[in-house]
Amino acid sequence: MTAPVLADALGPRARRRVRIASFVAAGVLVVVVYVAFRRLSDKGQLEWAKWEPLTQWSVLKFLLLGLGVTVKTAAAGMAIALVLGAGLALMRLSRTAPVRWFATAWVELFRGFPLLLLIFFIFFALPKYGVTMTPFRALVLGLALYNGAMLGEIFRAGILSLDRGQSEAAYAIGLTYWQAMFLVIVPQAARRMLPAIISQMVTLLKDTSLGFIIAYEELLRRGRETGEFFANPLQTLVFVALVYIAVNFTLSRIAQTLEARQRRRYGASSVAHAGAEDLAVVSAAVEV
């Protein structure tokens, strides 16, 4: 953590004030935590019997297999979304206008409505037309279509963030458009985009929990089933949340480390810092 931007090195009086404020703030936080624990124990939610199932290996195995399904689904969705996103980004930067229009319309369409609606459509409405899919395929298809559009925007921002001199130099030594793209631009852009791509992966991984709604046996659905079986929904959901946090926190940390490394190496021009417009695109993609 860097030094706070808004305060210099503090003088003796300010240091005293900060110390007092720290004590007060810490006191308030302790009271809040105490009240929460009191509430939990009054309602019998801290009793060991409620937590004990989460120490049984059979229960843990059930939940961890759910995590496996979640990871598998996320990986499949991400793989397809990456290919789709790359295609869309190249199409949006194409020199042929209709191709550009098509890709723009596609991206705007799939970014414009909720993933849940798409999943409902694929899983519940399509079978009425004779297209039946397993929950796994429905979920992967939905995740891929939605995140493909998001990644398309990230890739485009990454490619555009590259200095024009790069493509100009590539053309000057006689490379064709595609040679310049794949030999010069994409390798550099890909490195810059890596943090944003990993953030998008976190989003995608979180979105696999929508599978819960179509009764897909991923981590959240299994957590809910466990909670119903042992009559401890609060405890199992807390456990499930902690598992998600552990996985996503690790991924986020990797993204942050990469970003910091790139800022050191290339100055402050990784995608996340490319300027207001790119920032908007990236944060639009990062948040879901």
């Binding site: 509430r39 939990l40 309602k43 939610q45 976190v202 979180k206 979105d207 696999t208 929990s209 929508l210 819960f212 709604i213 959240l220 809910r224 909670g227 929904p233 609060l234 959901l237 807390v238 499930v240 949340a241 998600y244 946090i245 996503n248 926190f249 986020s252």
Partner: peptide
């Protein structure tokens, strides 16, 4: 920030709706 951002929204909804009702 770190806790909430890394938890799926669906989990938060269920935690609130099925979990916190247990503590009133």
């Amino acid at each position: 920030v770190e806790t909430i951002r890394n938890t799926p929204l669906t989990v938060l909804f269920l935690l609130f709706f099925f979990g916190l009702t247990k503590v009133g």
